[in-house]
Amino acid sequence: MSIPRNWRTRQQRYSLKAEVCNTCNKHIFPPRDVCPHCAAEKQSWTNLSGQGEVFSYTTMYNAPAGFEEYAPYTMALVKLAEGPMVTAQLTDVDAQDVKIGMPVEMVTRKLSQEGEEGQILYGYKFRPMLREAA
C-alpha cells in the first residue's frame, strides 16, 4: 500500500473511525460520501466499540503476495455490534477453536511489511473477547 494511501485510511485501520447517517441513523464503516442504506449525503463521525461476532471464517493456506510469511492465518467476516461488517484477520486464537457466532474484539496489530526497508502496515485484527460487553 502506498504511503499516502496508508495515511488516508489510518483512522479507519487504527481506531475503526466510522460514521452515523444523519438521515437514517445507521452506522457506516468504512466512511462513504453517500449512505449505502438511504443514499443521503450527510453523516457525522463516530467511533465503533470494536466488539462484534464472527459471521464466517477461513484459514488461508495460499497467501497473497506480501502475506506469505504469515500463512496459514485465519480470516473472518466480523459483524460489529453497531451493524457494519468488516473483513479482518483473527489473532490470539487457534484456527480449530474459531466458531461462527464467537464474540470478538478489535486489537491493533501489524498487518504486513513491505520488505526489510519498506513501511509496516498496522491495522485492526480481532481476538476472542476477553471480557463480556458492559
Binding site: 485510511t9 468504512p30 464466517s56 477461513t58 480470516m75 467476516l77 473483513t87 504486513s112
Partner: peptide
C-alpha cells in the same frame, strides 16, 4: 483498501461465503 489489505485472497472471500 478494506478486503485485500487485510490479507484475504479471492479464494478466501469465496471460502467465507461457503463456510457461512
Amino acid at each position: 483498501e478494506y478486503e485485500v489489505s487485510q490479507g484475504i485472497s479471492f479464494v478466501g472471500l469465496n471460502a467465507l461465503l461457503m463456510r457461512r
